[in-house]
């Protein structure tokens, strides 16, 4: 009896960080899945991906007023705006020869720089406050602890989003085309699907995912001047760790990063700055060969 009590006490203080890690990880997953799409399907290293998230975040900060209607409106506007930005990016990328990765990366970086500057010009240099719906503002009890209601709901919504994404990629014709384009772009082109349209569609989808993550995740990773950089870095690490192979790999990597950023910091505060680094080094060093093979075929 006492042993059990000691056991729960030992786990207890880490329950909330662990739950936070799940919320953080799912947020990073939704954001990173857009980058995975860009990279895996269109073969573009999209350095403006963080900007797409920031667009969603700023939209949430501007439109949310504590009601449910404003959340729905912000979600619609944020997703549309970020998707439109993705299509614009695809249009800008069209004249750059497919295959010159350096040019593509530099172009998307230029767009990220200019877009970030426009966002700051439009919304001001201060980090705006985000108002969640009033019903979700309080906290609920989770196993004897108070926990922010919004985060709990976010975990559910993000899990639903992840499941929907999985079903779309696995079961729909668009998802099949996307997977086919990863495997054999020439064959897909032979089937009569224009690669340019696939690229525009993928960048729009990536923008929509990042925009949705930006709106829903604004209370967790809020909009600000360095949001774009943070989200891009986290998404990149997820892509590197997940190895581009599967949705499951990406999800696992994102959850691992979420836990490292919350539970890891609570457990090992002294080593906190190096944890992400160490995780990436460990996974890459252990699986370098396997990942390299997968990357080459991806």
């Amino acid at each position: 009896m006492t042993a059990v009590a000691v056991g729960t006490n030992r786990i207890d203080p880490y329950l909330i960080p662990a739950l936070d890690g799940v919320a953080y990880g799912l947020l990073v997953f939704v954001a990173a899945s857009g980058l995975v799409l860009c990279f895996g399907v269109a073969n573009i290293l999209n350095l403006a991906h963080g900007l797409l998230y920031a667009i969603g975040g700023y939209t949430a900060a501007a439109l949310l007023d504590g009601g449910w209607a404003s959340l729905a409106l912000a979600l619609a506007v944020g997703v549309l705006a970020a998707a439109a930005a993705g299509v614009l990016l695809a249009g800008l990328l069209t004249p750059v020869a497919t295959g010159s990765h350096l040019s593509q990366a530099l172009l998307t970086f230029g767009v990220a720089l200019a877009g970030g500057s426009l966002l700051v010009a439009g919304f001001g240099p201060d980090d705006p406050q985000v108002q969640v719906p009033a019903t979700l503002e309080g906290s609920v009890m989770v196993a004897g602890h108070r926990y922010a209601a919004y985060r709990l709901v976010f975990i559910v919504v993000a899990a639903v989003l992840a499941a929907a994404l999985y079903l779309v990629v696995r079961r729909t014709r668009a998802g099949m085309l996307v997977r086919a384009a990863v495997d054999d772009p020439e064959m897909v082109a032979c089937l009569g699907v224009s690669p340019a349209r696939i690229r525009a569609g993928v960048l729009a989808a990536a923008g929509a995912l990042a925009g949705a993550a930006g709106v829903l995740g604004a209370p967790i990773i809020g909009p600000g001047t360095d949001t774009a950089d943070t989200v891009l870095l986290l998404s990149l690490v997820v892509v590197v760790l997940g190895g581009l192979g599967s949705m499951a790999g990406t999800l696992l990597a994102a959850l691992a990063i979420g836990e490292i950023q919350t539970l890891g910091v609570a457990l090992l505060p002294a080593a906190a700055p190096f944890l992400l680094f160490a995780a990436m080094a460990a996974v890459l060093a252990a699986r370098a060969r396997g990942l390299a093979v997968r990357w080459r075929t991806a």
Partner: peptide, 27 residues
């Protein structure tokens, strides 16, 4: 060991992540 087996745009991505992580560590 992180980059020697990768090529092309993958190196670009890994090195970018490493560079950003170093900045985070510095901060």
């Amino acid at each position: 060991p992180l980059v020697v087996h990768a090529r092309g745009v993958i190196v670009l991505m890994i090195t970018l992540a490493i560079g950003e992580l170093v900045v985070v560590v510095l901060g």
